[in-house]
Structures are given as structure tokens and as C-alpha cells.
Write a protein that binds this DNA or RNA. Sequence first.
DNA 1: TGAATACTTGACTAAATTACTCAGGTATAT
DNA 2: ATATACCTGAGTAATTTAGTCAAGTATTCA
Lengths: 141, 141
Amino acid sequence: MKLTSKGRYAVMALADLANFNSVNPVSLRDISLRQGISLDFLEQIFSKLKRHNIVKSIRGTNGGYILNKDPVQIKLANILNAVDEEVKTVQCKKDSKKGCNNKTSKCITHNLWDELEMHINYFFEQKNLKDLITNTSEGRN
Amino acid sequence: MKLTSKGRYAVMALADLANFNSVNPVSLRDISLRQGISLDFLEQIFSKLKRHNIVKSIRGTNGGYILNKDPVQIKLANILNAVDEEVKTVQCKKDSKKGCNNKTSKCITHNLWDELEMHINYFFEQKNLKDLITNTSEGRN
DNA sequence: TGAATACTTGACTAAATTACTCAGGTATAT
DNA sequence: ATATACCTGAGTAATTTAGTCAAGTATTCA
């Protein structure tokens, strides 16, 4: 059970962006250098973030990205969803061949994994970008 | 962010075992047939479960496995830990080359991922095998 | 206008992980 | 004896991840 780099990087990059949130856009190059993330990979990630209206892009010299909303309004769930980082615990979803769909009986642990998914998603729904940059780490379950 | 089959199968198999918990041991062959999990794979999994004292084995004809403790005392955390299904959200742990260890500054999102890990582990600590077989699904966060 | 900067897009690939299979073996009951 | 079922380690195909590479387009500034 682990988080992928794409999801982690997306959150790291946006936290960085929120930190340096000024009038000027922040270039991916800067984020790349500060966070140690490959520029090419960042471009992939931000293309998705843009498509989901989480960031806005400004082209040309001195261009870069800026947040499209107030950090408080950007939930981790939004970010992770944008980069296709889904929480998946079961195989037996609608379109899947595996799992309890192709059997007559529902698998024993089905409800359990659903609960787990909800439990994790709850966490991502609670946290927003603002929580990250004011890092007093007062997060509670 | 997803659970591996090994972890899922381990829990499914043990739930099955708990369900058919009688005087007689349950063979992997039976579990394999009922749950649709490859026998060879089950053997790998149960070898680990045995090493962690979650099940006991009985060899020979009519042999099989039985639970080593009361289902209430077997937490999901124990099971997943036994099959090496760890919850990993950050790269920057002690022995890792990647992440914020090899940098001077601590990465911005470090605390966040730690919180997430705790959040998920909390779930696995709360649930036990008994919860699964009395499937009234009354789990709350 | 032209050069530099920085976003944009899609295809491709190496490495790692996962989810097994395979091929032997050993212990026990009947 | 023989069948059952546990036991163990090595190997491997498929999938996923984590990027790289290449070729653009838009904008600013000198």
C-alpha cells in the first residue's frame, strides 16, 4: 500500500508553489531545482493540474504557473484526483474482470476494503494546501 | 495508492479460514477453490502467516491450517505486516537514498505523509478478523 | 525582429514491482 | 504404500511506475 511519486510530487510542487505564492508566476524550472523533481516529469504533472483548473499557466519569459484558487480551497483530494492517483483497494469494481463480480457470491472482505477506501479518502478531503504551508502540523484524525 | 493482491488475499484467506473455523484444519486447496486464489500463491502467503504465528499448520492427509488465536485477537495490522504489506507514503525513510534525507532541508510535505501513514495504520489496528466474519458492517471511523 | 524563456504535447523506454508459476521436496493419515 | 497436503526457493511474465526524449508554441524583452 503506497503512494506513487506522481501523487507525492504533485502535492510537493503545489506546496512549493503556494509557498512562493506572489504576484509573479513560478516556473517549473524553479520548482524542479528546489524540490529535486525532474523538469519533464513536472511538466506532465502540471499539464494535468491545469486541465483540472488547479493552476493557471502563463507562457513566455518570466512565465510560469500560479494557483487558480485560494490554497484553503484546494483539497488534497482534488490534487490527487487530478493526477490520477486513485485510492484502490479492491479489484471488484464495475468494469473489472477480477474480484467478486464474476462470482455468484460477494467476496467476504468487500465491505472492508470499501470502508478503507472511505477512510483514506476522508483524510484527503480534510486536508488542503493551506494546511501544508502553515506547517504547525496540528492535523488531527 | 493501492493495496496489493498479496495483502488482500491474506485477509480474504484468513476470513475464509475463520468462517470455516471448526475442529478440523482447513486445507489451502479448499480455500483456493472457494476464494479463487492460486494454490501456489496461497502457500507463499501462508508460509509467512505461519512464521508470524497467525496460523498453525497440520501436515498430512486431512491436514491444513487453523487459526493460532481467537479471531478477535488477530488484527488486520498483524496480517498485513506478516505478508510484508507495508504502508509507505514517503521515500525519505532511514535507509533510503531518495527523499529529504540527502538534502539539507526537510521536505515540505514530510509531516503530511507521516500523518497519512498513521491514519491508515490506525484503521488496520482497529479492525480484527472477528469484525469481518460478523459482517454487519458496523465499522465507524 | 529575433533570441531567450518557459509552457505544451505525445510517444517512448528502462527499471521496478507484482503476481504469480514451477519444481522439487517432507510429514502424516489410512 | 500411497495419497494428501504442507513446505521452500527459484524463476518469470505482465504490469506499472517513473521517468526521458523530441518537437513544438506563446510571450517577453532587448
